[in-house]
Design a binder for these strands. Structure first.
Lengths: 156, 156
DNA sequence: CGCCGATGGTTGAACGCTCAATTAAACCGC
DNA sequence: GCGGTTTAATTGAGCGTTCAACCATCGGCG
């Protein structure tokens, strides 16, 4: 407070706007492709992916929320939709009566398996194919640094 | 079709997930800060910024949509809200009877001026302060490459 | 044991975005 | 200057997210 604002210089401005444009365009494109080809938004796809990788294809709601970087509320709503679609089912947690497990159904797994190749192709085409190997490496380091730096003021 | 999927190798996987986590966390954080401090989502802030930079603080709806990377429909809905808040006003375009101009009001400008320092500080803290100058430069090149690569399959 | 703050999860309302349909005016070719 | 196509912008329905409020259970501590 009282301190002068450290405005962005022209280079920073340019970087920030390019980042905004690029990440938005990338996400929008992948989201639209996934919606078109698999009938689900990217966020839901990610939930199914995480479940498919978990032992027993099941996870506690909270862990799933953390893994997908979403709020508990969001995941709760999403789980309701995914359950209605028959892609997941909920089970009571045996060790904590408050807890719920999200379980990937066979149908959910099949849907995911059908959607994955197209989505991966999209990620490749829109992201990796556009960058040099060095840039991919730079992007990884930058992203990991940022992710690290932002943890602690997370989504809830 | 019929071609084997080119799956992501472990490094690419790691890069992709780090990017997802980081960009989501960054956007969520800035969005939440802006909502808390200025009562508007980041998308609306961007609209006001673009208008403030335009000659006469006014832009055609289409140009504004392009500048902010949003669909016409989205901008139309957003403009309705911004107008209701008294931050912008609409005028008929003198040269094209179909056209509408979005005009930033004095009140809108004042709101933007009040919100800007806090937001810029946020961008600085959450993005630039975490990266080395070299990384900032890398991020700019990567983002510009991606933005370039994605144009043509844009939002509509 | 009995209370009390913390944790796990859900719910409903309000909001923003997407998609498809709609209206109106401009542009184009003849 | 008349039809047909394209472009500008809006609309409404449906979906996903957020936020705050809520209920239930857990864990600790006196």
């Amino acid at each position: 407070m009282g301190v002068m604002t450290r405005w962005l210089d022209p280079d920073e401005q340019r970087t920030w706007r390019a980042f905004l444009t690029a990440s938005r365009a990338l996400m929008d494109t992948l989201d639209r492709e996934l919606q078109r080809d698999a009938g689900m938004p990217h966020a839901y796809y990610e939930i199914l992916v995480r479940l498919s990788e978990a032992p027993g294809r099941r996870l506690r709601m909270s862990d799933l929320a953390d893994a997908t970087g979403s709020s508990r509320s969001r995941l709760s709503h999403a789980a309701a939709r995914l359950e209605a679609a028959g892609w997941i089912r909920r089970e009571d947690c045996p060790t904590d009566r408050r807890g719920q497990l999200a379980v990937l159904t066979d149908e959910g797994f099949a849907t995911l398996a059908a959607a994955a190749p197209g989505h991966v192709e999209g990620v490749r085409r829109h992201l990796f194919d556009a960058l040099s190997p060095a840039q991919v490496d730079q992007l990884r380091r930058i992203s990991e640094t940022l992710a690290d730096h932002l943890t602690g003021s997370g989504p809830n």
